[in-house]
Design a protein around this nucleic acid. Structure first.
Length: 513
RNA sequence: GUCUCCUUCGUCUAGUGGUUAGGACAACGGGUUUUCAUCCCGUCAACAGGGGUUCGAUCCCCCUAGGAGAUGCCA
């Protein structure tokens, strides 16, 4: 553990630590993703809450890989997980690669453990072998649905097999699964830190769920219970979609004779339509946000505010502040909608907090991607300074800087003309502006002087100020929306600017004829 | 279908048995500005509904409605 130097002052033993003779429970929480896809907003929010809770309690944050689904496993997902945690700055105290006293932290490396425990449950009469084929299961499910049966789920076909029947199946070479013998009577409940007491009739608990699959891998239910127990996890913080299996897990802890951790089911993260956040709502993978140019501090800050608040007023928090201020009591019960616009706003705020130097470094990868020549750092810093307050995401920089590296196309000539100005008048205005600009810049006049002259020319031509500035802007940047005009000129360079206006003049003239 | 959970502005949320129900984003309007953006100012906007309890309920209780989730050899 990295915290050792400090904590070794106190005796750490298992889940307690002693401070001046008093034993405290050492908080141990975990984030246990399944490497089947890219890390998404919902998952990372769970990771964050666990991490912040651990830090705020001076406890441990454990990472565990739940790779028990052989079908859906993907190594890229695992790479993405590590990259994402690193990008966000979430460090775990125990986990894969790093190790720890309760390893291994990858479930596929704990294979034997699950089988051992599952078999023990069978021996104790708390679980049983099931030989039903997936086809039969599917058929049963279909029939239940069609009959609109009140009872949905496994029909407990193999629950009370005689030893002869079992033998017969074994002889057919069927590899059985192990199912939990869920009691049909009584009820099971557990205490949730947020929800309070949650109770379910045993008859409503998933009927005899699979614990050990036929390939020998455990299901989530089994693996999660065994590992949380063995790793001495004290609090399970996971999304509310797990609430229905809470009683089932309790039943498992009871079957093993173990004490269950405390539960805290986190509100879910929804899309605009109130459904579970998914791809159709927009980007959901952290990797996508990263690629688009969201800053880790902005994403972390915003995501922390979905389902949690500090005092309802303050909303800017650094990671370090959240590590201290986070508290379970302020978590909301109701699901929260992920607001992309608010994230954009946060990101813009964080971008503006950066120094020009810092920001340019962040911008470089996006600029480099375009293949533009980027040797002049001084110029790029100038660009950064004027672009800064116009960026929502880092990738916006390419649009803003395009005029520097690519000649405008001026496909739509009408944009040369400001509102209420005819195209020929715009041409005249541009000609005049060209002369003023050239004269002014060659004579090294103050910018404000040149501006004044341009404004005066507008008056002379009987148009509004913009009647002159707009064609100029379009000529230089190719767009009615651009960085400030004189910064654009400076960035582009005098000669280049003059040439470009000339080109624009020619194009415009041709267009009018 | 069954079970479980949830319900304050469009969104994230604060809040209390007596408040003009607060903040932020968004939207809209205005100001600054050569455009856009930034920044500043302002406007709109909520206690799901119905019963109780109470002198008084957004807050406590019950019901209804709506929403979500679960119901897999996925997690």
């Amino acid at each position: 553990m990295t915290l050792c130097p400090l904590l070794s002052l106190f005796h750490i033993c298992g889940t307690t630590k002693e401070i001046r003779g008093v034993i405290f429970m050492q908080v141990r929480v975990r984030y246990a993703p399944s490497p089947t896809g890219l890390q998404h907003i919902g998952g990372i929010r769970t990771a964050l809450f666990n991490y912040f809770f651990a830090r705020s309690q001076k406890g441990s944050f454990i990472l565990r890989i739940e790779d028990t689904d052989q079908e859906r496993y993907s190594p890229e997902a695992l790479d993405d997980l590590y990259a994402t945690l690193k990008w966000l700055g979430i460090e775990y105290d125990e986990g894969p690669i790093k190790g720890g006293p309760f390893g291994p932290y990858v479930q596929s490396e704990r294979f034997d453990i699950y089988e051992k425990y599952a078999k023990k449950l069978v021996e104790d009469g708390k679980a049983y072998y099931c030989y039903c084929s997936p086809e039969r299961l599917e058929k049963v499910r279909k029939e239940q649905q069609e009959a609109k049966s009140q009872y949905q789920g496994y029909d407990r076909h193999c629950r009370n097999l005689s030893s002869e029947e079992r033998l017969a199946y074994e002889e057919q070479g069927i590899r059985p699964v192990i199912r939990l013998k869920v009691p049909t009577e009584g009820k099971t409940s557990f205490e949730d830190i947020l929800m309070g007491r949650i109770t379910r009739r045993n008859s409503d608990v998933s009927p005899d769920p699979v614990l050990l699959k036929s390939d020998g891998f455990p299901t989530y239910h089994l693996a999660n219970v065994i590992d949380d127990h063995m790793m001495e996890i004290t609090h399970i913080m996971r999304a509310q979609e797990w609430i229905p299996s809470g009683p089932l897990h309790i039943l498992l802890y009871e079957a093993f004779g173990w004490e269950s951790p405390k539960y805290c089911h986190l509100p879910m993260v929804m899309g605009k339509d109130g459904q579970k956040l998914s791809k159709r709502h927009g980007s959901t993978a952290v990797a996508e946000f990263r690629k688009e140019g969201y800053l880790p501090e902005a994403l972390l800050n915003y995501v922390s505010l979905v389902g949690w608040s500090y005092d309802g007023t303050r909303e800017f928090f650094t990671k370090e502040e959240l590590e201290e201020l986070f508290s379970l009591e302020k978590i909301n019960k109701a699901p929260g909608v992920f607001d992309y616009k608010k994230l954009d706003w946060f990101n813009g705020q964080y971008i503006r907090m950066k120094s020009d130097e810092e920001l340019l470094d962040l911008l470089m990868p996006y600029l480099a991607e375009t293949g533009w020549p980027l040797s002049d750092r001084g110029k790029l810093l100038h660009l950064t300074a004027v672009a800064k307050e116009r960026l929502k995401v880092l990738s916006d920089i390419t649009g803003l800087a395009r005029f520097l590296f690519e000649e405008p196309a001026w496909k739509d000539l009408s944009i040369f003309a400001a509102k209420g100005v005819e195209l020929p008048a715009a041409h005249t205005a541009l000609e005049r502006a060209y002369a003023i600009l050239r004269g002014g810049l060659e004579a090294n006049k103050e910018q404000s002087m040149i501006e004044e002259e341009l404004a005066q020319s507008a008056k002379d031509l009987g148009v509004k100020v913009n009647g002159v500035f707009q064609p100029l802007r379009v000529a230089i940047t190719g767009s009615t929306v651009s960085l400030p005009l004189f910064d654009s000129i400076e960035l582009l360079g005098f000669e280049h600017t003059m040439n470009r206006i000339q080109d624009a003049l020619n194009v415009l003239k041709k267009g009018i004829e």
